[in-house]
Design a protein around this nucleic acid. Structure first.
Lengths: 220, 220
DNA sequence: TTGATAATTGATCTATCGGTCAACTTTGCT
DNA sequence: AGCAAAGTTGACCGATAGATCAATTATCAA
């Protein structure tokens, strides 16, 4: 989705590429700790002290690697955007809609499972009005959605699927798939399980693909 | 969904029923200001000072009405649960699945439009692990989902709709509808509109109902 | 009118916030 | 080995956090 936005974020926040082994490892530890804390308390609600304690490093160390709290948060966001929409990016009207959307939905759910913290940080940021991402992402997202919507519209015009609004279809896919990361707590309550297993995510994938693909007139 | 949970929350956090007119009005002003701030910064990220400033009242006043920050937050959550799932609550296996789910989806989207702040506060709370709601809501939600899932399963057994997993169907509806409140910022970016109008929400309702209802084998 | 109770709020407390700085150690080149 | 640069971190800063308290004002029954 967001090559351009990610690049600009990186320019603004990323630390030096070349660095000693100790520093690289410490930075990784800090970013991991920061990810957990930001996902749990949001930007304003997270304290550098809490991150430092979780990372097992002095607070001063964090502020030496990253110039301030916003810089650290930006680095975390940059890491997240690093691995956003892999699939569905290069799709054209000639591609098979069933295959493309089936893959897209399943990869989205798998991302929810493998990177729940990243999804949560992103979700909180958006819910709160995306004060730190707006300038990096707003235009980019509009372009990405526009491009994808045109592909879907072409499929519709070719009679390959039902005439549903492409943008709202994308929203449904996003909402339905991200739910498993962002609202994982709620999902666990509903299923009364401390953690979801392979079979749960398999069932989630299959159910979503069945409903959405059949719902837009695609079947296999 | 949550009669019991709401009642217990109220017992724990609600202020006195009987109160002077000035106090009632001030409490309403405070709760409204608190709703905005909590939706924008989460529980930890919100300061009583910011709420007081927005409400135009001294901070001490807030702490006199509500005993502390958790109390105020609890009162806001209680207000939110007050108006949760109106529809789909008394549905039985004898009801028409198309009519029931069609109404449910549309009412969910309308709620997203009319109460975006409530939805956002709830979303942030859940994303962050629901530290303040867990004891009030976890069991309740499991029961509610179980009951609704049984109704859907009865529809499936009666051959009225496709054999999809009822719980994941509910998740898809929740994710797809709440998206319009929680990720309203993202939706606005995608559509490049400062605010969504009647026709946008109409299109959202129609698209979601079409895809989901057709996707589970219901049509009209 | 009076007096007890409730309501209100400015002053103030301690803890913690993000951030700076200076002292010290380690690293790496000559 | 010597030394400048980079790395590291404990001490500390002003600002602000949630919360308490005491002094004042408003309310209302007797």
């Amino acid at each position: 989705m967001v090559d351009q936005a990610q690049k600009r974020l990186k320019e603004a926040f990323q630390t030096k590429e070349k660095a000693g082994r100790i520093r690289q490892q410490n930075e990784a530890v800090i970013l991991e700790a920061a990810e957990i804390e930001f996902a749990q308390h949001g930007f304003k609600g997270t304290s550098l002290n809490a991150i430092a304690e979780r990372a097992g490093l002095p607070k001063s160390n964090i502020l030496y690697y990253f110039q301030n709290k916003v810089g650290l948060y930006g680095a975390v966001l940059s890491d997240i955007l690093d691995m956003w929409n892999q699939s569905f990016n290069d799709t054209t009207a000639d591609d098979d809609p069933f295959e493309t959307l089936n893959t897209y939905i399943r990869s989205k759910i798998r991302y929810s499972r493998s990177h729940p913290l990243a999804s949560k940080i992103f979700a909180i940021e958006i819910i709160q009005g995306a004060p730190h991402l707006k300038k990096f992402l707003a235009q980019e997202l509009h372009n990405w959605v526009g491009d994808r919507a045109r592909v879907i519209q072409a499929w519709i015009d070719a009679g390959k699927m039902d005439p549903v609004d492409p943008v709202h279809l994308l929203f449904l896919i996003w909402g339905g798939t991200q739910h498993y990361a962002d609202f994982g707590t709620q999902v666990q309550w509903a299923l009364d399980k401390p953690e979801l297993g392979d079979e749960d995510f398999k069932k989630a994938e299959d159910t979503l693909c069945h409903i959405i693909l059949k719902g837009i007139g695609l079947a296999r």
